[in-house]
Each structure stands twice: as C-alpha cells, then as structure tokens.
C-alpha cells in the first residue's frame, strides 16, 4: 500500500512538472525572438533539441530578409504555430508584404510552418526536387508530426513549392537581390542556399550544421563536394541551418567536413572487415562525439544509412 501511495505522489508531481513544462513552452512561444544580424536580415535561432521532444518544432534557424518592395521568408519552422510566430515577428518589423517563402530543403523543422504564410499568397520557392521530396514525406509528416499541424491535420497544410529552382534563381526584393542556388544531392536531395548580396549573408539551410550533429539524409560524398564548393565562397556572415551565426564559413564547414570524412572512412573500414551494422554503429567516428550535440539521436541513423548505401557500392572486398 505504501508503494501505491508513492506512486500516486509521483504521478501528481509529474502532472505538476508536466504542466509547468508546458507553461514554460507556451511562454517561449510568446517570446519568439528574431535577431537582426545585418540590416534587414532577421534570424530566429532554433533550439538544440531532438526531433521527438517537446519544443522540437522550433529547432531550425529560420528568418526573413526585407527589401523595399518584398519580404522573403527563409524556412518557416516545424509547426504551423512557429510559422505564425514568425509571421507575427515580420509584421512587427515591417509593412512590406511577404512575396516569397523559400524552403532550403524538405525536412519537417524547415517546412511545416509554410501554412502560416498562405494568407499572404506568396510564391513558394524551393529546389526543383523539393515537391517530390515533400510528396514522399507526406504520409510520414501526417503520421509523425500531426500535432504540429493545425487540427485536424490534413495534407493540404503541407505546402510544396510552386516556383522550382533548377540551378539558380534571383529574387528581387526591391533594391535587394537574393541569389538562390539549388545543389546536387548532399544533406538531402533538395538542398538550396540563399545569398543576400547586399549584406553578404549566406543562408546555408542544413548544408551547414553547427554544434548540432549533421544529419545525413542524402549522400555523404555529395555533401563533401558541396562543402568543397561552398568553402570557396567569400561571404561576410553565414546563417547555418542549425547553430550559431558565423563570420568564418570555412572554419564552420571544416568541422562538418571532418565528421563526414570520419563517417565515410569509418563505415568503409567496417564494411571491409565484414562488420555488422551494429558493430559499425558502435565504432564508427566515435572520436567525433565530444564535438557535437545530440549525438545519440543522430549518429546511429547516419551510420545505418551510410552503411546501407555503401554496402551496395562497387568495391573490391569479397
């Protein structure tokens, strides 16, 4: 009976703690902050959380760029409510209309807020492969992230691009031009970067992760070559998909490059010695662990994915 009483007490405590937690989150949402990192360039920095915990809809760096005639939104967050918070933040800063909503890739934390901008009737802009990628993810989003959509969740809340970028596209915001670049398969198969020439600000989407471990959903070797090319770019500041703003793009890319190289080399070595996927997960690139956040929720998936890709590549072993 005494044990029973403890259980009840624990339950009550957890209820209260849960309610407080919920309250804190609600406050965080009210205090949705954007930082003006350059004149007319506003960033809301996402939180370092896994994708399956409360607050997971606010983990990506999202924001907007203001021209004299148009605002371009760059990524919209992982829920309709984060999207609306971003829209409200824009309205507090400017009366210039939102003409463009740009998505840097298909992942849930970057696209689910699109629905919030539907009333603005913007052009939705993305990689030429983004629409297909969203179609592929539709069932997964509706099942796994239903709670992040407006209720009841429905497929028409998932807004795909109407303006595809095959390789490059310029958006004119009025006295301000954005240069969009669609990349070959890297982090995903639909990565897109946005460069604001006026301020020298590059938005990499998830081609650049800082602090948070990069998640591989495309091709590790493809990602490395994109990193190689981005590393040549001369920009004043970079807004990564996750993590802090940086003035040193090259250094930020080299940390990511180091991890991806360790991942590729590690998986190749494990395959060559006939190791199982579990053994690979335990051994590959473990020296990198201290350098990154959210290792446990991302690294095993990266290894599993790369292992499955590489085991069918042509190679000399057996």
């Amino acid at each position: 009976m005494r044990r029973q009483a403890w259980r009840v007490a624990a339950l009550v405590w957890l209820c209260l703690a849960g309610a407080r937690w919920h309250g804190t989150l609600a406050q965080a949402r009210d205090a949705f902050t954007v930082r003006e990192v350059a004149p007319g360039v506003f960033v809301h920095f996402g939180r370092m959380l896994a994708l399956d915990v409360p607050g997971h809809d606010d983990i990506a760096n999202i924001g907007f760029i203001v021209g004299s005639k148009c605002v371009a939104v760059i990524d919209t967050g992982g829920s309709s409510s984060v999207g609306r918070a971003l829209r409200a933040a824009i309205a507090r800063r400017t009366r210039v209309p939102v003409c463009y909503v740009v998505n840097t890739h298909v992942h849930v934390d970057h696209v689910l807020g699109n629905i919030a901008f539907k009333p603005d009737r913007p052009r939705f802009v993305g990689h030429v492969r983004l629409a297909a990628a969203m179609l592929r993810s539709r069932a997964f989003f509706l099942r796994q992230y239903a709670g992040d959509l407006d209720q009841p969740p429905s497929a028409d809340q998932l807004i795909a691009p109407d303006t595809p970028v095959e390789r490059e596209l310029e958006l004119d915001l009025g006295d301000r031009r954005l240069r969009l670049r669609a990349w070959p398969i890297a982090h995903t198969d639909c990565d897109l970067t946005v460069l604001d020439e006026q301020s020298g600000t590059l938005w990499t989407g998830d081609l650049l992760f800082r602090e948070r471990l990069p998640a591989l959903d495309g091709s590790a070797s493809g990602w490395l070559s994109v990193i190689g090319e981005l590393g040549q770019w001369n920009v004043r500041r970079t807004v990564p998909g996750h993590g802090a703003l940086t003035g040193d793009l090259g250094a930020a890319l080299s940390a990511e490059r180091r991890y991806l190289l360790a991942l590729i080399d590690g998986v190749r070595a494990e395959l060559e010695r006939g190791a199982s996927m579990q053994q690979a997960i335990q051994r590959v690139a473990t020296a990198e662990e201290p350098n990154w956040l959210l290792w446990d929720s991302t690294h095993p998936r990266n290894v599993a994915r790369l292992y499955q890709q590489m085991e069918w590549q042509s190679d000399p072993t057996n």
């Binding site: 259980r7 624990a10 339950l11 957890l14 209820c15 703690a17 849960g18 309610a19 937690w21 919920h22 989150l25 409360p54 997971h56 809809d57 099942r143 796994q144 992230y145 239903a146 709670g147 992040d148």
Partner: peptide
C-alpha cells in the same frame, strides 16, 4: 503499465505529437 504511464505523463500533458 504504471511505470510507462508515469514516464510518459509529461509528454501526454504537453499534447505534442506522440504516435
């Protein structure tokens, strides 16, 4: 069942996605 329920309670209260 109790252990599972208590462990998951904060998540349930949050009401977020929990398939």
């Amino acid at each position: 069942p109790i252990r599972v329920a208590t462990a998951l309670l904060p998540l349930l209260l949050y009401g977020g996605p929990s398939p």
